[in-house]
Amino acid sequence: MHRFFDSDFFYAFRRSPIAIVSLIVVVFMVLSALLANFIAPTNPFDAASLNLMNGFTAPMEPNAFTGETFLLGTDDQGRDLFSAILFGLRVSLFVGLMAVGLAMVLGVLLGLIAGYVGGWLDTLIMRLADIQMTFPSILIAMLIFGVARGLLPAELREEMAITVLILSIGLSEWVNFARTVRGSTMVEKEKEYVAAARLIGLNRWQIMLRHILPNVLGPVLVIATITLALAIIAEATLSFLGVGAPRTEPSLGTLIRIGQDFLFSGEWWILLFPALTLLALALSVNLFGDWLRDTLNPRLR
């Protein structure tokens, strides 16, 4: 641990206000999402605790009927918006992280194989990546989402919605990982430490996973962070379009979709606060990712 605080990396971090602020925002949001159960004044999904009379309460103003005050107001159902955002943040972050994890594992493995084994496998994987790159990833995600929903029996659709969401975003974002890992793998495999490993009879998998993988992970970390921002936005987009997280388990995107209905009738807060949260989250993850990229590997720019 001492080594970390003494490293050039930490030194660069300390000297970058953007990195510090964006990391604080991200950590703050992750913590509030994790601790949503304890922080949130109400449980927005407990239908019994909702009072329809509380509907459309403006932020920090006492409700005309019940006299209750809500920090960020309530929605049409009388649901406390602050609590809904905390829980929505949890869904958004969970989907984002899992999707990035899936994309990362898939992309890194395919990239390693393409780069190390080469030949027709390389051609196959990279052409697949090329084809996928010609479509916007949100389109790919919608396609996968649609196919998966079609295959699922109707009664499971609501239940599996989050899983399907993760799968579709994950599958649409592996290409960047694969490309970068393939490139670094092709550089690393020519190095002599790989020849030394071949000389003692290690097989391909041992060489790829034990020797090459640790040396190509630096850029992967950077891409993972930037992809996290993309995945969070993709999730919000899908949910906003109504094909993502269900109303029973609303993410930030779902909240924004709900809020949109009331934007022009004067209940601006239902849209604004979830949108601001999403903006702050995506922006700080992205800024932190940019900083990581510049610090760890300026070549990736």
Partner: peptide
């Protein structure tokens, strides 16, 4: 029975491995 010493002192050792692990790997492999 046949081993090699390489040209580049920089590329011939895996930068992410400790020296002890680098040296004990052949013992395990064989």
């Amino acid at each position: 029975r046949i081993q090699m010493v390489f040209q580049s002192p920089y590329a011939s050792l895996n930068p992410r491995w400790k020296v002890g692990d680098i040296l004990s790997e052949p013992m395990r492999a064989f």
